[in-house]
Design a binder for these strands. Structure first.
Lengths: 231, 231
DNA sequence: GTCCCATGCGACCGGTCGGTCATATGACCG
DNA sequence: CGGTCATATGACCGACCGGTCGCATGGGAC
């Protein structure tokens, strides 16, 4: 966690630091990212940085576990659970795409949890973020089971969650980039791409993905309901 | 490409270098990987390394585009196209999982194509590998369309390919790791995990994944067949 | 023998990194 | 005013990196 001095910082200075840190960690993996560069770009002496954070990992961890999720929540708002399960899931997916389009750098930081790393602490951090995401999705799918929208029996819900997670994570990201006709790195420089991928197209894509997932869960799961769990 | 001196090397020395390079690049992303470490572990002076390769990227590129694909082909063998489309796809998926289980390090190098990188050349290399993989899968799915096994009209095949790719790529990898109860990094140290994930369980998982994909393609695609392409 | 040349080799180079430390600054207190 | 204390600062540190360079070596050609 940041030191108290960080939170006492004049707002403009603190914002500069956070903004440049997000940019750096969005464009470069943890090891590639350079504190010196962040400091220079934020016009904050490196010595001062260490008054605000314990070290590089402290900053990274705070971004991934506090700042980015906070901003994501802010963007998503509180979405009241309206409509049937599939409509809710579709809405969830569409909002996720909207976040990717409106805040590419924040979305990239969220996705960084899937990056490999040779540093054990970073791996652990990424892992915990991944698992939290999977748990959230599993809870959502469990609602679908409870409502009878999904016929998957409990034993396979874990597997189903993983596949669905891959579809709405890397799969949809890939698809969105394809639609934009751009690479991730080009997209990061832009603050907002809403002009290139508006709500209508996003909703069409989301509906399409939901059809894919719905079909997969409907026919895929029940046939393997008799498999045994590993000991 | 490696220099000619590399291919003239005594076999044992060359194998040591290749083995240690594969290990290093499997465990660490490109930027994290250290030539010095590879050289030390392969007991080859760093000066000598530069007799064999232009630079670090030359080695990495050769591994990703030549050596690893060659070994993968060797492992997969020439699989004659027998059975219907879905049976063939299932076989394809099962063999992919087998490769992951029997040669985790090689499989990890193949998957490295999805890693982000701030180095333009590395990004380009990764991108070309990814696109090649997608093209291969698309060709396969086109067979399915030709045979009438998939009802997806042509316009959406590109999108469908991307989602299927996410399922059998990151999705299945995640699922396999879940089955193994291990993290990727733990798995890399082992040469073979066949005792922990044998053919029977692999086939069950593959069949499960195919059901998921089949259901997704059957119901998901046709409904959006009327959408317009972007200008 | 002597020359040549491909290859082996490790000390060395410039550069960047994450992180530290001695000092400077300036607000507040007596 | 002098003293104290939190904070600001940038020169500096040791480690490591990818890559180079000049010398060593050794097997033919003659």
């Amino acid at each position: 966690m940041p030191r108290s001095t960080f939170f006492n910082l004049p707002e403009e200075r603190r914002n500069r630091l956070v903004r440049e840190a997000i940019t750096e960690f969005a464009e470069r993996a943890y090891v590639e990212a350079s504190l010196s560069q962040i400091a220079v770009r934020a016009r904050i002496p490196k010595g001062s940085f260490y008054q605000y954070f314990e070290d590089k990992l402290d900053l990274y961890r705070w971004l991934l576990t506090e700042e980015v999720p906070r901003r994501k929540q802010e963007f998503l708002g509180v979405s009241p659970p309206v409509g049937g399960f599939w409509a809710r899931l579709e809405h969830h997916v569409e909002r996720g795409m909207a976040f990717l389009v409106e805040h590419p750098r924040l979305a990239r930081l969220t996705a960084a949890a899937a990056d490999p790393s040779a540093i054990a602490e970073v791996r652990g951090l990424h892992r915990s973020i991944c698992e939290a995401g999977v748990a959230e999705l599993r809870a959502l799918l469990e609602e679908g089971v409870a409502e009878g929208a999904i016929r998957t029996p409990g034993a396979d819900l874990e597997h189903a969650t993983r596949l669905v997670s891959a579809v709405i994570g890397p799969g949809l990201t890939d698809l969105v980039l394809q639609e934009l006709g751009a690479e991730l790195h080009e997209v990061l420089g832009s603050d907002s791409l809403r002009r290139r991928l508006g709500g209508a197209r996003r909703r069409r894509l989301a509906a399409w993905a939901i059809q894919f997932i719905r079909g997969g869960l409907d026919t895929g799961a029940p046939r393997s309901s008799t498999r045994k769990r590993q000991p």
